[in-house]
Design a protein around this nucleic acid. Sequence first.
RNA 1: GGAGAGGUGGCUGAGCGGUUGAAAGCGCCUGACUCGAAAUCAGGUAGAAGGUAACCCUUCUCGUGGGUUCAAAUCCCACCCUCUCCGCCA
Length: 424
Amino acid sequence: MLDPNLIRSNPEKVKKGIASKGADPTLVDQFLEIDKKRREVIVTVDDLRHKRKELSQTIGKLIKESKNPEEIKEEVRKIGDLISEKEKELEVLNKEFEEILLSIPNLPHESVPVGKDETENVVLRKEGSIREFKFKPKPHWEIGEYLDIIDFKRATKISGSRFYVLKGLGAKLERALISFMIDFHVEKHGYKEIFPPVLINRASMIGTGQLPKFAEDMYKIEGEDLYLDPTAEVPVTNLHRDEILSEDDLPIKYVAYTPCFRKEAGAAGKDTRGIIRVHQFNKVEMVRFTKSEDSYEHLYELLDNAEDILRALKLPYQIKMMCTGDLGFTAAMKFDPEVYMPAQEKYVEISSVSNFEDFQARRANIRYRTKTNELKYVHTLNGSGLAVGRTMAAILENYQNEDGSVSVPEVLQKYIGIDKIVKA
RNA sequence: GGAGAGGUGGCUGAGCGGUUGAAAGCGCCUGACUCGAAAUCAGGUAGAAGGUAACCCUUCUCGUGGGUUCAAAUCCCACCCUCUCCGCCA
């Protein structure tokens, strides 16, 4: 959430910022109206409670002096009734205040290009070299079925559409990718590995910003206060919810593998073939908690960490900078590395690297104490490193051979034990 | 699931109806001593929401939510969580 004081002192700036993200700028006016009422009632309630406190203490004294306190008791009782009345009013206002604060998106960083939607994102650079095929490259789902390492039909039987089963070397390649990515980030980039739960409570979902606004894209466990993890960002960022860290602890760098579950509501008809858009996929996620002043340095480092995996796998990719309209609810700045898919001759998002500044930290109440005893909100960042299923799809397409086999990228060979996947 | 114990500040831990938002210790900050550090000594140090130009002032918070009372960390009820034992179990 945003700092309420920022909205109060600079409403025009906030309006402009959220409007550039496509949010309704009148949210700011609604906030200011509720905020004003709320503060008025707070003053009233505080005064009444102050009076009650004083009189109650007087009663204590009177009793000690064995004088009759009945008259004052009656007065305090009346004040008490008045207080409960006003408190009810305040409770409603507090709720409205909170709701509206939680529904206002983060402001874009001023250097983010203004744009209305994904068509106005900016490609910053292209990396790696696109292979020239002497034959027509096949899409990954055809390769996967031909090699009998991906089974879509049977996944439909046990679960439904947008699921897939990995078999044999396909399953092993998936495991190899997970291990490779985690080892790489731990050993080369200094992250600490986390293996979190994937059933997550509501408070955590609010902390990172999935709730209350995006409930329709999440799987909820019936009858329990639990949701299926949509990304490791949620459990890992919430590790430090309601904590006060020491400045010496920062930066904290975590890497976690989790399966991710998404309903993909509103994506009907999009990427229906293959393993690009599915309800359950694996992802290795990097999360950082930093001091407020150096989060942007960390953002570029995080982006480079994600790219490092693509470089190691020798996959061609491009870096896209998201414009304001495609930043999403929580990010202040976001880069999407996109991998090249030769069969479709297009780039596909394979990672997403964001700085949330203090937006999540305010929601999740994650602070740190500076050396001079000041309390500040941390900045949180995260980036996929990488989406495992999409990486597998990219490998199948980029490393395919004319005979239908797929070569194994060099860095994965020690994990999978062979250098080529051939039809069994 | 059953029985018992417990949830208090950054941490440990006392308090169990009325200046107790809370003893003590640790940690942290400032100062003294020191060439510097350690040790020692002195002082400071919970968070949030409001009010105020400011010094400061007020309210709320002792797991969460209700209740009793003029007044609740303290008494009562419900729930949540943690620990120990028992049962079940990959």
